[in-house]
Lab assay of single mutants.
Amino acid sequence: MATADDFKLIRDIHSTGGRRQVFGSREQKPFEDLVDLGWLKRSSVDSRATHYQITERGTSAAL
């Protein structure tokens, strides 16, 4: 179930172009929650960072 923080984060991601790069596993937790909701997808993972991209469902949630 989505929380107020989830909606705040997806709106922030949407307003800044729909993509986010995250460093460190602790910082990934809120983004992984949005992946579980179907609002974000992991577009790539490298040794230092994970890249996320907003989905259509995420765009709808952000509006």
Rank of each mutant, 00 (worst) to 15 (best):
V45D: 07
A61S: 04
K8E: 10
K29E: 08
A61N: 04
H14W: 14
Q28M: 09
F7K: 04
E27N: 14
T16M: 09
E56N: 08
L34S: 01
S15D: 12
F23G: 07
D12A: 11
Q28V: 07
E56M: 09
H51N: 12
E56K: 10
L63M: 11
R26C: 15
S25N: 11
D6E: 07
W39L: 02
R20C: 13
S43N: 10
P30L: 06
V22S: 04
A62R: 02
G58V: 01
R42P: 05
H14S: 06
G58F: 00
K41F: 15
Q28R: 11
H51M: 15
D36G: 12
K41H: 11
D6L: 10
L9T: 03
G18M: 02
R48E: 15
S60V: 14
V45R: 10
S15R: 14
S47E: 14
S47H: 11
V22L: 04
V35F: 03
R48L: 14
I13E: 01
F31W: 04
R11S: 07
A61K: 04
G24S: 08
H14P: 00
V35D: 00
G58M: 00
M1F: 13
D33T: 15
L40N: 00
R19I: 12
S47A: 13
L9W: 03
R19M: 12
F7L: 09
R26Y: 13
R11N: 05
R57M: 14
A62D: 02
T16C: 10
V35Q: 02
S47G: 14
D12I: 09
M1N: 12
V35M: 06
G24L: 09
E27F: 12
V35G: 02
L40M: 04
D46A: 07
R11K: 11
W39F: 03
S43G: 10
D36I: 14
D33A: 15
D6M: 13
E56P: 13
A49T: 11
E32L: 08
V22H: 03
K29C: 06
R26S: 14
F23D: 08
E32P: 01
R26E: 15
T3P: 03
Y52C: 01
S25E: 15
D33G: 10
Q21T: 15
L40Y: 00
F7A: 03
S60H: 13
L63C: 08
G38Y: 03
E32N: 09
R57H: 09
G24H: 13
D12E: 14
T50Q: 06
R48C: 13
K41L: 14
H51W: 15
G58A: 01
S25C: 10
A62S: 04
S43Q: 12
T55Y: 00
I10T: 01
D46K: 06
V22K: 03
A4C: 14
H14K: 05
T55G: 01
G58R: 01
T55C: 02
E27H: 11
K29G: 08
H51E: 15
V35K: 02
S60K: 14
R57P: 06
K41A: 12
G58Y: 01
T55Q: 02
L9Q: 03
K29P: 04
S44D: 08
R19Y: 15
G18R: 02
L63A: 06
D33R: 15
Q53V: 14
L37N: 02
Q53S: 09
R26W: 13
Y52E: 01
D12L: 12
K41P: 00
R19S: 13
L34A: 02
G17L: 04
L63I: 10
T50R: 08
D46G: 09
L40E: 00
H14D: 03
S25L: 08
T16G: 10
P30S: 06
S47V: 10
I13M: 04
S15C: 13
Q28S: 08
K8D: 08
G38L: 04
Q28P: 04
D5P: 06
I13C: 02
A49Q: 08
T50I: 14
R57W: 11
T3D: 05
G17Y: 04
G24C: 10
R11L: 12
D5R: 10
R19K: 12
R19C: 15
F31V: 02
I54N: 01
R20E: 03
K29D: 05
P30A: 09
K41N: 09
S15W: 09
V22N: 03
S15V: 10
Q53E: 14
R57V: 11
G17M: 05
S25Y: 10
G38F: 04
D12G: 06
P30F: 06
R57F: 10
D33K: 15
A49F: 12
I13D: 00
L40S: 00
F7W: 11
A49D: 06
S25H: 12
R42V: 15
G58W: 01
E32W: 05
D6V: 05
S15F: 12
T55N: 03
D6Q: 14
D6S: 08
Q21C: 15
F31P: 00
L37C: 03
D5Q: 11
E27L: 11
S15Y: 11
K29Y: 05
S43E: 15
M1T: 12
A62T: 03
F31H: 03
Q28A: 09
R19H: 14
I10Q: 00
T59L: 12
E32A: 08
S47C: 09
A49G: 15
S47K: 11
D36F: 13
D6I: 06
T50S: 07
F7Q: 04
A49M: 12
K29T: 06
K8N: 09
V45Y: 09
G18T: 02
G17H: 05
L63W: 05
Y52G: 01
K41Q: 12
D33I: 15
V35C: 09
K41W: 13
R48F: 14
I13K: 00
Y52H: 00
Q28F: 06
T55D: 02
D6P: 05
A62G: 03
L34F: 02
E27A: 14
D33C: 12
F31N: 01
D5K: 12
E27Y: 11
D5W: 08
G38S: 03
A4R: 10
G38H: 04
V22D: 02
T50D: 03
H51I: 15
R19E: 13
S47P: 11
S47N: 11
R26A: 15
H51L: 15
A62H: 02
T55V: 02
Q21A: 14
S15I: 11
E32V: 06
F7C: 07
E56Q: 10
A2Q: 04
T3S: 10
Q53K: 07
G24N: 13
Q28C: 10
D46V: 07
A2K: 04
V22C: 05
W39Q: 00
D36Y: 13
T55S: 04
E56V: 09
R48S: 13
Q21R: 13
A4W: 11
T50E: 04
T50W: 08
S44V: 13
G17D: 06
Q21N: 08
